[in-house]
Structure formats: structure tokens, C-alpha cells
């Protein structure tokens, strides 16, 4: 284990450092699925990774943070203004063009902003195309453009690269990381891929399954961009995550 990777992240005391706090949050489903007793803070300007094996409740936890679902126990404290979300499937309206899909969340008067958001993800030329006329990678770019166009206070990502090929995955991850870094966006990133997590996240929680509970909370004080420039450090972070996930499987 790398010395600088901290399994007990420093406590955040001041409320203005924290966007959301989860206190003992549980959500139960039949068959033992769901999450239990989640205590978590979402620091402003940081990217929190949620990882674990399939079915451990990663997406359930993200839906609770997004407000798409309500906890059975515990509470989520804090308020988020603008939310952006990149879904596993882009969730575009097939009857709207790429530009209109972005403009949908901005309002009719912000046509230029929609185009600028598409330009940012390299899709300006395809703005008039419909989702069925775009490749999987291009559709996900529209989803990312839409999420960034609202200038989110909190950006949520639910395995956004899982259905993409390797080239698109690497390219889009880089694009998202740059935007998060440039704008200081607070983000939550769900993935089962430790390499993606290690490239994007400041803090990571590893969930065990049945029911989903936090096994470990890891924090690397080195920002993701700097960590990526030091392959040894990144590899150590990935290895630490893998160990934790494996421990949860036993």
C-alpha cells in the first residue's frame, strides 16, 4: 500500500466545505439489495468515486444522492442547486436533434449555449443530427454536453463509459476530467472500473454487497491529474481499490 493513500480521510468540519452529508442512510429492497447505514460527506470541488462489485448498491446510492429516490432511514443534509447527470445510457429524446436535446434542459432562449456545449465535446458539426444518426460515443457526448451545459453544482455520473468502446471511453473520461478540473465541479462518479476511478476521483468509497455498505473510504491528497502523471502512484491507488473490492467479495 502506498503511504500517501489515506484510508481515513481528514474530517471536514466547516459546512461551506461540504455540499451534502449523508447520515446513516439506508434504502432496502426485497432480496437483501439496497444500501445500509451510509455515512458520507461530499466535499465541494472534489470528485467522489463509488465502486464495488455489481449489485452492491452503487446506483442506488447515486439515486439517493440525486434525489431520485428517498432513504428508508437516515437523512441527507444539504441542498444542491443545479444538478447534471450523465447516465449509463445517454437518455436522449429520439425525436429531438442533438442541439435540441441540450437546449431542452436550458430553455428556449439559450440556443447559443447549447451549441457551445456541443462544441465543447466536439459535436458542433453534428448538432442537427438526431440520436439515431449518431454513434454510441457521440450520443454519450451529447449526454455529457447536456450535463455540463447547465453549469452543475453537482455532477453525477452513473457508469457513463460502461457501454463504450475503449477509444471512446479513454477520450470521454479525459474530457470529463478536464472539465471537472477547469470548473472545480463537485462530482460523484459510479463505476466498477478501478482504472477509471483512479483517473478521475479524489476520494473513493468501496461498497460491499448484500446489502451495500461502506467497506472502506479512501482518499488520495494528490489530485487526479497529478496522480495520473505519476504512474506508480496511480497503480498503487488502483491496487488499493482492488484489494478493498476483493475483501468485500470474501
Amino acid at each position: 500500500m502506498h503511504d500517501c493513500i489515506n484510508a481515513n480521510p481528514p474530517a471536514l468540519s466547516a459546512d461551506n466545505d461540504v455540499l451534502l452529508r449523508l447520515h446513516g442512510v439506508s434504502r432496502h429492497f426485497t432480496g437483501g439489495a439496497g444500501v445500509v447505514d451510509i455515512h458520507l460527506t461530499l466535499p465541494v470541488g472534489q470528485t467522489l468515486g463509488i465502486c464495488g462489485v455489481s449489485g452492491c448498491g452503487k446506483s442506488t446510492l447515486l439515486r439517493l444522492i440525486a434525489g431520485l429516490d428517498l432513504p428508508d432511514e437516515g437523512e441527507i443534509v444539504g441542498s444542491v442547486g443545479r444538478l447534471g447527470m450523465v447516465f449509463q445510457e445517454p437518455q436522449l429524446l429520439p425525436w429531438l436533434s442533438a442541439r435540441d436535446n441540450v437546449q431542452l434542459v436550458l430553455g428556449a432562449e439559450q440556443s447559443d449555449k447549447a451549441l457551445a456545449a456541443l462544441r465543447e465535446v466536439g459535436l458542433e458539426q453534428a448538432a442537427g443530427r438526431y440520436p439515431a444518426q449518431l454513434s454510441g460515443g457521440m450520443r454519450q457526448r451529447v449526454g455529457i454536453a447536456r450535463a455540463l451545459a447547465v453549469e452543475p453544482e453537482l455532477l453525477l455520473m452513473d457508469e457513463p463509459f460502461a457501454s463504450l468502446d475503449y477509444f471512446n471511453r479513454v477520450e470521454l473520461l479525459e474530457l470529463v476530467r478536464e472539465r471537472i478540473h477547469e470548473r472545480g465541479i463537485t462530482a460523484v462518479f459510479v463505476s466498477h472500473d478501478v482504472r477509471e476511478i483512479a483517473r478521475l476521483c479524489d476520494r473513493v468509497i468501496v461498497l460491499g454487497s448484500q446489502p451495500g455498505r461502506i467497506l472502506e473510504h479512501l482518499h488520495d491528497p494528490l489530485p487526479p491529474l497529478e496522480r495520473d502523471a505519476r504512474p506508480g502512484r496511480r497503480a498503487a491507488f488502483e491496487e488499493r481499490l482492488l484489494q478493498s473490492i476483493r475483501a468485500g467479495m470474501l
Partner: peptide, 17 residues
């Protein structure tokens, strides 16, 4: 598709939209 309905909630689309 419930994903589209989730998208509408996340981006707080107005009832009319």
C-alpha cells in the same frame, strides 16, 4: 423509459416542457 423520466426530474423540466 424510466431513464427519460429520471432525466426530466434531474434537469427539473417544467410540467409544460
Amino acid at each position: 423509459d424510466t431513464g427519460l423520466l429520471d432525466m426530466a426530474r434531474i434537469y427539473r423540466l417544467s410540467p409544460w416542457t
